[in-house]
């Protein structure tokens, strides 16, 4: 049944640090690499050398943020790289709309999955998701989404260090963290408490498990030196404030025209 479990024993998910992400897309590549050759239908590409499109479970958006002026002083815009994949919501609207029972949320760890053998490819779950986390594979005709690398995290054939989602394992900046958000002592829960983790689109009522850590406030720039304390300041003063000689005459002549 595509009813949601009332509670889940654990809430496995990701914590994504928007302060640290450098927008390198390594997680996108690692995700596609792992998930195109493991569980379920491969992640196909269409017209890869022309008007390309394809299925991805994780994508990086980049946003420009224009901060409000501080004391009427305009601030410079900042760039934030924004990785986005399934948030494994507690109230996942994608699950309840599914007519075939292909979409489900696991009671044991809260992972939202698609059973591709039951999916009829109607696309309604993708419509129900506010985050764009589900994409219909155009070759297989079934819905694809982040599995939280369920075939890695419990996989005893892998080294223990590799038993985490491919995106987390590969992130060179350490911007992605994987763990149990139901356990207040887990490192991900501590990060969320320390840095003020945020839900995306809380007004949609989905109660996402994945949390986003906002960019840290910008450093304040040191006040400009008055000059006295800097012995080199006189040498940096403008050489000529007013034009002199021939240029001054040209300047005056042009002014009078």
């Amino acid at each position: 049944m595509t009813a949601l479990p009332a509670t889940t024993a654990r809430k496995l998910g990701l914590v994504i640090d928007l302060d640290t992400c450098v927008g390198c897309h390594a997680c996108v590549t690692a995700c596609k690499g792992w998930n195109t050759q493991n569980y379920g239908a491969p992640l196909s590409d269409q017209d890869a050398y022309g008007d390309a499109s394809g299925t991805f479970l994780n994508r990086i958006h980049s946003f420009q943020v224009q901060p409000e002026p501080v004391n009427d002083v305009p601030q410079l815009a900042q760039t934030t790289h924004f990785p986005k994949s399934c948030l494994h919501c507690e109230d996942a609207p994608c699950v309840t709309v599914c007519p075939t029972g292909a979409s489900y949320k696991r009671a044991e760890d809260g992972i939202v999955l698609v059973n591709e053998d039951a999916c009829m490819g109607c696309g309604l779950c993708a419509w129900a998701c506010p985050y764009g986390a589900r994409e219909m594979d155009q070759a297989a005709g079934v819905m694809k989404k982040c599995t939280l690398c369920v075939d890695r995290i419990y996989n005893e054939n892998l080294e223990e260090i590799d038993r985490q989602p491919a995106c987390v394992r590969t992130c060179p900046a350490g911007a992605r963290h994987f763990g149990d958000l139901a356990d207040p002592d887990s490192h991900v829960s501590k990060l969320v408490a320390e840095r003020g983790g945020l839900d995306l689109m809380p007004e949609q009522g989905t109660k996402p498990v994945n949390q986003y850590l906002p960019p840290r406030p910008r450093d304040t720039i040191q006040p400009v030196m008055s000059g006295d304390e800097d012995i080199l300041a006189p040498f940096l003063a403008p050489v000529a404030e007013e034009p002199k000689g021939f240029l001054a005459w040209v300047d005056r002549a042009l002014e009078k025209l």
């Binding site: 499109s53 299925t55 934030t80 993708a126 419509w127 994409e135 995306l200 986003y212």
Partner: peptide
């Protein structure tokens, strides 16, 4: 776009995740 990203200030898209279209942009 501010509730979607939870970023503070005036937010605008600076770069899409990819240069082409995808299922989401085509469908929705």
């Amino acid at each position: 776009i501010e509730t979607a990203t939870q970023l503070k200030g005036r937010v605008s898209l600076w770069e899409k995740p990819h240069t082409g279209q995808n299922y989401l942009t085509h469908e929705m």
